[in-house]
C-alpha cells in the first residue's frame, strides 16, 4: 500500500511538471485478482492506480503503439525487472528510445510489493546482471525438466496434445511485447508460410515459428502463457530457448539497450558440433 501511494504521488508530480506526458500502470480488473492496464494522463486518472502483487502483466508492449513516442515526449511505465529487460530489447532493436521511458520499477515477494531504485533502464543494469548470475531459479521448472527427460516420441506426443487445443486466436502474439512486427509471418499469404486453419499441423508450425522468433528475446514475463485461452504452456518452449542461448552463446536477453540481438550477431568460434 505504501508503495502504491508513493508511486501515485510521484506520477502526479511528474505529470504536473510535464516531465512525462503519460504513465502506464494498473487499475482494478473484472475480478479482485485481475488487473487491467491504466493510461494515466491526468492526476484524477492517477487516483485509479493500483499496485500490488497481482500486477503481473508486462506492460512494455504498449510503448510501441503507433505514434505514442513519436513526439519525443517521455512516458512513464510500471515494470517488473523482466519488463525492464523488454525495454532494453526494444531499444536494442531500435523500436524505441530508452531515454524516453521513465520506469517505475517494482517487484513482489509473496503479497509484499516493493519499489525498485532507478528511473531509467540504464540504472537497472546492476539488478539485471544479478538476474543473469542466478538464472537457474528463474528457469528451473519441474514440467520443463520432465519434458527434457522424455524421449523424442514422448515429447512429440506431449506437444501434439498441447497444440491440438490451439485455436489460432493469436492472443499469445498480441500479448507479447516482443511481437511488434507490422506484418506477422502468419498474416503473410504469398507465400503462405503458416497454415491459418487450426489443425494440429498448422498449430505446430505457428507455435514453433513463434518460439523461434522469440529465441534470445523472450524475457519470461509470462504474458503469452496467461493470455492463452486453452492454457498451452508456452512459457516452457520460450524458457527452453532462453536456456539454449544462455548455454550456447552466454546471452541473457535485455541486459542493456546496446546489447546485440543474439541471432543477429555471431562469433567465428561458435560451436558447430552438429555440422557434418
Amino acid at each position: 500500500m505504501i508503495t502504491q501511494e508513493r508511486y501515485r504521488t510521484t506520477v502526479k508530480e511528474l505529470l504536473a511538471n510535464g516531465s512525462i506526458k503519460m504513465a502506464i500502470g494498473y487499475k482494478p480488473g473484472s475480478t479482485p485478482d485481475r488487473r487491467r492496464p491504466l493510461f494515466i494522463r491526468t492526476s484524477e486518472e492517477a487516483e485509479q492506480l493500483v499496485l500490488d502483487s497481482t500486477c503481473v502483466q508486462n506492460l512494455s508492449g504498449y510503448l510501441v503503439s503507433e505514434g505514442l513516442l513519436s513526439d519525443e515526449k517521455r512516458v512513464g511505465i510500471f515494470l517488473r525487472p523482466e519488463g525492464v529487460r523488454s525495454i532494453n530489447i526494444l531499444a536494442a532493436e531500435y523500436q524505441l528510445n530508452a531515454d524516453q521511458i521513465v520506469i517505475f520499477g517494482f517487484d513482489s515477494t509473496g503479497r509484499e510489493v516493493r519499489p525498485l531504485d532507478g528511473r531509467s533502464a540504464r540504472e537497472f543494469s546492476g539488478l539485471l546482471n544479478e538476474l543473469k548470475e542466478k538464472p537457474l531459479q528463474i528457469y528451473k521448472e519441474p514440467l520443463l525438466e520432465r519434458i527434457e527427460k522424455m524421449n523424442a516420441k514422448e515429447r512429440f506426443d506431449f506437444w501434439q496434445e498441447e497444440f491440438s487445443r490451439c485455436i489460432k486466436c493469436y492472443a499469445c502474439r498480441q500479448a507479447c511485447p516482443m511481437c511488434y512486427c507490422r506484418r506477422c509471418i502468419v498474416d503473410s499469404n504469398q507465400p503462405q508460410w503458416v497454415n491459418t486453419s487450426s489443425h494440429t499441423l498448422g498449430n505446430f508450425e505457428w507455435n514453433i515459428v513463434r518460439a523461434f522468433h522469440l529465441s534470445g528475446r523472450c524475457v519470461q514475463c509470462g504474458n503469452c502463457d496467461r493470455a492463452c485461452p486453452v492454457n498451452i504452456p508456452l512459457r516452457l518452449i520460450n524458457q527452453r530457448m532462453a536456456n539454449e542461448v544462455l548455454d550456447g552463446f552466454d546471452h541473457f536477453a535485455g541486459l542493456s539497450a546496446t546489447q546485440e540481438p543474439v541471432l543477429a550477431s555471431f562469433k567465428k568460434d561458435d560451436t558447430e558440433t552438429f555440422i557434418l
Binding site: E148, A152, S215, I237, G248, F266, E272
Partner: peptide, 16 residues
Amino acid sequence: RRRWMVFRALLDFTGI
C-alpha cells in the same frame, strides 16, 4: 550457424 543451433534445439524440444 547460430540460427541452426537454436533451431535444432527447438525441434528437439518439440519432439521432432
